[in-house]
Design a protein around this nucleic acid. Structure first.
Lengths: 336, 336
DNA sequence: TTGAAAGCGCTAACAA
DNA sequence: TTGTTAGCGCTTTCAA
C-alpha cells in the first residue's frame, strides 16, 4: 500500500528488489538485457510499491519530455478538436501527450505560447498560425524543435507544412456541379483574397477553365464568412439578370446562409438551386436539406501532422521541409 | 544569438551576469531580495542568451509540474472543448497548462490515462468519468493529487464534484412551457433512468408537481440519445389519443429529431408544437426554427473546476469534498 | 545582499 | 548480467 502523498522512487524499488537503480531502469525500458529472475523481482517490487516512473525526471535526464505542443486559435472552433484527436491518434500510441494553447489568433499570445512550449521542453510543435510571420517561429527552430505548420503555404526552413487541398477541393466541387449539367455556377467567398479562401477561388476557376467554361466575374461575390454573409452573397447572385442555378460556398456556415436565401425566395433546393458547402461541419447533416459538401479532413490533417512529427523525432527524416496536402473529400447529401 | 540545438542553462546566465545561479533564480521568481543593479545584469544576460527556465527541471526540484490533467471521453464531442477552454480560462493565467487524454469512455483507457497523469506529476486532475467506479480514482488520491470529477454525483473522499444543474434546468424548461399555457407537456428522454438523464426527468416531474399538474406517465417516452431517437419519441407522443402540444427533449440533438417529426407531420413549430432542447449546441441556431433550449454551461463548468483546483493547489482549501452545481440557462429562440 | 553545496529521480557512460 | 558514478537544470537550505 503506497503511503499517502509520497511517491516511491526508483531507488526504493531497487532497494526492495535487491538490485541497483540502473537495473530497475533497464528492466523497465529494456535497453539492455536483464535476467528473467531479476526482472521478475523488479516487477514485483514495482507492483508492491505502486511505483510509476517520474516522467519529469526522465525528461530532464534525456532532454525528451514525450510531449507535443499544439498551438491553435481556439479549441472551441469545431475544426481543432478533430485535428487534436487526429494528432493524438498517432502520437498517443507512441507515448506522447499533447499540451494545447489557445491563442485566439492574437500574435502576442501566439508568441508567448511558443515560449511556454519551449520552456516546457516539448519535443515537437504543431502550430496553426494565424499571423504567418516566419520569424515568430524562429525561437523554436533555433533550439532544434521540429515544427509543423497547419494551414498556410509559406515555405520556411525547419518548418514542415500540412494543409488541406483547398484548391483541389473547390475544383472537385465545381466539377461535380458541371457534371450535373450546371454551367452557370456562382461562388460565394469570404472577404479576403488570400489564404485558403484564395485557394478555393482558384480551384473554382481552374475547374471552369479546364472544362472550357468561361468564368464570369459577376458570379463571384465577396462577403462575410458567416451565415448572414452566405445569405447576402447568395441573394446578390440571385438578383443577377441571369442568376446561377448552382452555388459553391467557401464554407458550410455560409452554405447554411445560402439555404436561408433559398428559403426566403421560396426556391427548392436542389431543384431550383443547388448548393455546395465546404468543411462538413456537424451541422451539415442537421439542416434541411442536408448539405452536400467537401469534407475538410481535420482528423487526417492531425494524423499527417503526427506522423511528420514522429518521423522528425525519430531522426529518420532529416531532409528539408516537406509539404503535405491532404485531399478534401466530396460528401454527397441532399443540397446538390 | 542562441546556438542551434542547445538551450542556455541558469548556470550560463549566472556566468554571464557574474553572479551565482542562486541569484539568477531569485531574480526570476523573487523569493528573496536582489539588488536592482544585480537584477538588471541578470535580466540583460537572460535577454542576451535567450534564456528560458527549464520547466521540467524546476518541476523535478519542486515536485510541481504546473500541469493539470484533463481526462475526457472524446475531445471531438462538442461539450468538451468548451469545458477545456473554461478550464484554461482560469488555469492559464495562473501559469498552468493542461494535458488532455481521450478515453472514449472505456474503463481501461480511463485507468491508464490516470496512471499517465500521475507519472507526469500533474498537480491536479479533472476527470469526466464514464465508469464511475470510486476505486479507479484511488491511485491519484493516494498520491495526494486533487481530483475534480465532472458530472456524476457520487460523493467520494478526496474528490470534488462539479456538474450542471440538470434537475433545475429541466424544471425551468418545464415551467417556461407551463407559463405559456401548455398543460400537457411531453418529455422525450434517453434509454437510461440514471445519470444526468434521470436528473432531467425528475426536474420535469418536480416542476409539474409544483404547479399542481398531475404528471401523466404516457407523456414520457424513452428512446435513443440521437436525432432518430428524438424523432421516434416525438412521433410516439404525437400518436397518443391526446397528444401533447409541447415537448421537452433531453438534449438538442433529440430536439432536432423532434423538429423532423413535426415537419413530417406538417406541424408548425412552435404554433402546433412547441419544442425545447437541452445543451445549446452550435447547431441549435442553425436549424429552422432555431431551438429554444437550456444551455449546458460547459464553459462555466470548466471555470468552476479550474477555480476548485486552484483553491486546493494553493492549500487554502483543505476541507472535505465540495459539490458545485452550475445552473443551466434558458435560451429563448424560436421553437418554443 | 549574495554564494556554496546538496539533491529532486532518472539514465547513460564506464567498469566489472 | 549487473553496479558505480556522474550529472541533466533547477531550487533551497545553510552560511557568510
Amino acid at each position: 500500500m503506497p503511503s499517502r502523498g509520497h511517491r516511491p522512487s526508483i531507488g526504493r524499488v531497487a532497494e526492495l528488489a535487491g538490485v541497483s537503480p540502473t537495473t530497475v531502469s533497464h528492466a523497465l525500458n529494456g535497453r539492455r538485457p536483464v535476467s528473467a529472475a531479476t526482472r521478475q523481482r523488479v516487477l514485483d517490487a514495482i507492483e508492491q510499491l505502486g511505483y510509476r516512473p517520474n516522467v519529469l525526471a526522465r525528461g530532464l535526464r534525456t532532454s525528451k519530455s514525450q510531449t507535443i505542443g499544439l498551438i491553435i486559435p481556439d479549441i472551441t472552433n469545431p475544426f481543432y478538436p478533430v485535428l487534436a484527436r487526429g494528432l493524438q491518434d498517432v502520437l498517443g500510441p507512441a507515448g506522447y501527450h499533447e499540451i494545447i494553447s489557445n491563442t485566439d489568433g492574437e500574435r502576442d499570445l501566439e508568441r508567448s505560447a511558443l515560449e511556454q512550449m519551449i520552456a516546457r521542453q516539448v519535443d515537437g510543435i504543431a502550430f496553426a498560425v494565424f499571423h504567418t510571420h516566419a520569424e515568430d517561429l524562429r525561437p523554436a527552430i533555433d533550439v532544434g524543435i521540429p515544427v509543423v505548420r497547419l494551414g498556410g503555404r509559406l515555405v520556411q526552413d525547419g518548418v514542415d507544412l500540412v494543409h488541406s487541398d483547398d484548391e483541389g477541393g473547390a475544383a472537385e466541387a465545381t466539377r461535380y456541379l458541371l457534371d450535373r449539367g450546371y454551367d452557370r455556377i456562382g461562388f460565394v467567398c469570404g472577404p479576403e483574397a488570400e489564404g485558403p479562401a484564395a485557394e478555393r477561388v482558384s480551384g473554382y476557376f481552374g475547374a471552369l477553365t479546364e472544362r472550357c467554361v468561361k468564368p464570369d466575374p459577376d458570379l463571384i461575390v465577396y462577403t462575410q464568412f458567416s451565415r448572414m454573409g452566405g445569405m447576402d452573397g447568395t441573394l446578390r447572385l440571385l438578383g443577377l439578370p441571369r442568376p446561377p442555378r448552382a452555388v459553391v460556398c467557401a464554407n458550410d456556415v455560409m452554405a447554411i446562409g445560402a439555404l436561408d436565401a433559398a428559403r426566403q425566395r421560396r426556391l427548392d433546393v436542389p431543384g431550383d438551386l443547388a448548393i455546395m458547402g465546404f468543411d462538413d461541419i456537424e451541422a451539415a447533416t442537421l439542416v434541411s436539406p442536408q448539405l452536400t459538401t467537401m469534407a475538410n479532413p481535420a482528423r487526417r490533417i492531425g494524423q499527417a501532422c503526427g506522423r511528420l512529427l514522429l518521423d522528425r523525432l525519430s531522426g529518420e527524416v532529416t531532409g528539408p521541409p516537406s509539404e503535405t496536402v491532404v485531399p478534401a473529400c466530396l460528401v454527397r447529401r441532399q443540397s446538390a
